[in-house]
Design a protein around this nucleic acid. Structure first.
Lengths: 225, 225
DNA sequence: GTCAACATACCGACCGGTTGGTCTGATACG
DNA sequence: CGTATCAGACCAACCGGTCGGTATGTTGAC
């Protein structure tokens, strides 16, 4: 551990992680075998289990790998824009622009994996949660500023940040179901309009109390993560 | 097919379908084995392959089964309400009220399955798409009327209907990731506010052109399913 | 400077258990 | 008796994971 890099021949670990992003997003976690992963990475099974204790451990590492990649991709893009509302809308516009082509190229590994593993693997679930929430919370300060500027201190910025991710995830599901990436951009367009409403001042009144009477009583709720 | 019910001892087919709803929503499709399904349904493997040609065929049937169940559950609730906007908001409020407790009880089988199978099983993908789109489109007429009443003929009602489902699906993913159903209700609350904006007339102007400049050019898109 | 001692990275045959699916019957009803 | 509904032993393929072995360093005593 104290010494410098020992002897990575051509780093099988990174090749496995990169391969995992594509293969798992295309096939799902459970449907992807270790042998398949090794084949896609051009690596043997020995190398796999040298670097990862188990298939589950690779999934956790892949989640972190994906998080770093995603954060890096978007950070520069939106931090250059002038105001908070512009940065938030700019982020959403970037996400929209990326949608298209192969599903495995623009969908979210974390959303895909957590659906399959939330009940069976606490480690994977936690890694996916951390990746999604950390990424979402990068928008929170700008959302808070934009909400303040629009005179809407009643709305929790963290909740809006998570809603942005929820719409993206839901859009991906619709896109996969229909086989058409346009289903995801349609969802993002509604999200953009919603954020436009939120960030525009003097919108008469928040139409929230407009809600119809509930057929059932809403239950007590927990905290917001 | 033409004859009446021949001799269902205690209908293993229905028991398998019902069991599949819970088990697959909790574990995912690929991670659920046929033996496990049989155990959960209290049925033997012989019965399984008597009623279904394959595991894939059961998934397709389960998707249809889920669609029928979901449609029946909500139809009565929202058709009784007075106006179109109230019915739409009432539907969303009902969906919100149902969220809570076990994930397998309120999440969507179709959204879960399609994520795992969109690339590997065209039959399951198509069944999931049909279930989601058919269910979504039940709202379209009321959304169209509400949009018209609010003076918004520019917005496609079908697109709004699909957006409602997208938010629900995304909310479920966030809930599974955080382990807290409240993450889903938070998303639904934003959806409710958005619909409130859309259905309220005289909202100065649609803030849609407020969008930030795109870092990338958006690509040509296909049709909206 | 060299060589023994050791650590890391990787290879691929192999293992026990599980998988989706088949097959031969038994049972019950008309 | 015929036919639909099951029961469950059985199978080949595949699964995640193990293990003995090799290749390629790095280190430090002499």
């Amino acid at each position: 551990m104290v010494s410098t890099h020992p002897a990575p021949r051509t780093d099988a670990r990174t090749k496995l992680l990169d391969a995992a992003l594509g293969v798992i997003r295309a096939q799902g976690y459970a449907a992807t075998s270790v042998d398949e992963l090794c084949r896609a990475a051009g690596v043997t099974k020995g190398a796999f289990f040298h670097h990862f204790r188990s298939k589950e451990a690779l999934a956790v590492a892949a989640a972190a790998h994906f998080g770093v990649m995603a954060d890096g991709l978007y950070e520069a893009a939106w931090s250059a824009l002038p105001g908070p509302a512009e940065r938030v809308l700019g982020y959403v516009a970037l996400r929209r622009a990326i949608i298209g082509g192969e599903f495995a190229a623009f969908t979210c590994l974390l959303g895909t994996m957590v659906q399959e593993t939330y009940a069976s693997s606490p480690a994977i679930r936690a890694a996916c949660e951390a990746g999604i929430v950390d990424h979402a919370m990068r928008l929170a300060p700008d959302i808070a500023a934009a909400l303040e500027a629009a005179g809407r201190p009643d709305i929790a910025p963290e909740s809006v940040a998570l809603f942005v991710q929820a719409v993206l995830q839901g859009g991906f599901i619709l896109a996969k179901a229909s086989g058409d990436p346009a289903a995801a951009t349609d969802a993002v367009d509604h999200l953009t309009r919603y954020l436009g409403f939120l960030f525009t001042p003097d919108l008469t009144e928040d139409p929230m109390p407009h809600i119809a009477t509930l057929p059932h009583e809403p239950r007590a709720e927990g905290e917001t993560p």
